[in-house]
């Protein structure tokens, strides 16, 4: 069973996930939830802590990470080989997180869920540790500078 769960909502509001986590925290009092949100729409409780920022270096201290399907967080978690559940933020005007969600699901890089699929059993169950090393191609700064000034 997981003892600590970290929820990352990113830089844009994701109230559906926050409300879902709030409900789940009531149903699973043995789990300590930490919710990162810039504009929380829920209040803290005995087992739900609210933070506006959390350093990436402390991600590994949690048993499970539930994150919006934002590229920055997802790629960081993949390159660190940390288990997580990705949930697309469909509240955004541009639903581009669905593309990343489908890519993760198709390639089985991580667990994925839509908001309505996020239930207590998914939170309680120990996540499967990824058994691959994910590498992202390095950013070619020289190419960009040459294009801009040569």
């Amino acid at each position: 069973m997981n003892n600590s769960v970290l929820i990352l909502t990113g830089n844009t509001p994701f109230s559906a996930l926050e409300k879902r986590v709030f409900e789940l925290s009531k149903r699973t009092p043995d789990i300590a939830f930490t919710l990162q949100s810039i504009q929380p729409c829920v209040t803290c409780s005995v087992n739900l802590r609210l933070v506006d920022f959390i350093a990436e270096t402390s991600f590994k201290e949690y048993d499970l990470i539930i994150t919006h399907a934002g590229a920055g967080t997802v790629f960081f978690l993949l390159t660190c080989n940390l288990p997580f559940i990705a949930i697309p933020n469909l509240e955004r005007r541009d639903p581009h997180q669905l593309e990343l969600y489908n890519w993760l699901k198709k390639n089985k890089y991580s667990q994925t869920a839509l908001i309505e699929e996020l239930k207590s059993d998914l939170i309680v169950k120990k996540p499967i540790q990824p058994d691959f090393q994910f590498d992202l191609p390095e950013f070619n700064l020289e190419m960009l500078v040459n294009e801009l000034f040569n």
């Binding site: 920055g72 790629f75 390159t79 191609p137 390095e138 950013f139 190419m143 960009l144």
Partner: peptide, 8 residues
């Protein structure tokens, strides 16, 4: 398209 790699 030119592939520039990922910003991180």
């Amino acid at each position: 398209l030119k592939h520039i790699g990922v910003l991180r």
